[in-house]
Amino acid sequence: MMKEILQAFNIAYRVNDGKNVKVLFENCSLSFDAGKFYCLLGESGSGKTTFLHLLAGLDKPDKGHILYRGKDIQEIERNNYLRDHVSIIFQDYNLIPYMNVYQNIAAAMAIKKLPYTKESIAEMLKKVKLDTDIMFKRINLLSGGEKQRVAIVRALVGNNDIILADEPTGNLDSDTAKEIIALLKTAVYKQHKTLIVVSHSELVAESGDVVYILDQKIKGFVPKS
């Protein structure tokens, strides 16, 4: 069985803001093994989130390939890849604002064609230490920590074996951040998922099995020494 679940191979990516062209990645390659917690560190604006989007298939590299289990994700239907293999936790949660907690999670489960009940969703909320009373609360009435937990529940539904998280603790206080990291780690190890987190937080870095730093000179990732 292939060890690497996800690979970035010779990735090149440039950003054109209309005035300048900024090279974010040049011949950048990186491999991720199944069942591990990866942390990608880098300064703000260095391109960490862009790299995560490339891994998620939300954006395309100028050059190079993203391989999922050895297959270029461009060859996999994007919606299949996003629906069945990869879940994303966004920095600003990206929950559907007009839906309540239940509807947000139910929508994700429906897209993945998974059966769900109020009880099953309540059970998932309990696992991330969320009171089931919030189930029918609108998203905009939740605190940052609650939103992030809901986003985690949404990412964990189904059998997606890769979880991509963009600054999952960025908007949280340190205690909540620790709890969120612990939750993610539990999910990774229990369910044998691969967690790839981009962050500039040392707290997150300390938790990772493997930590890479985005080196702006070589326009790629290097292992943290």
């Binding site: 996003l82 929950l95 604002p97 929508a107 897209i111």
Partner: peptide, 10 residues
């Protein structure tokens, strides 16, 4: 919102 649904696999 549409972007979120696409990211979820729609």
């Amino acid at each position: 919102e549409m972007g979120i649904f696409i990211a979820l696999g729609n």
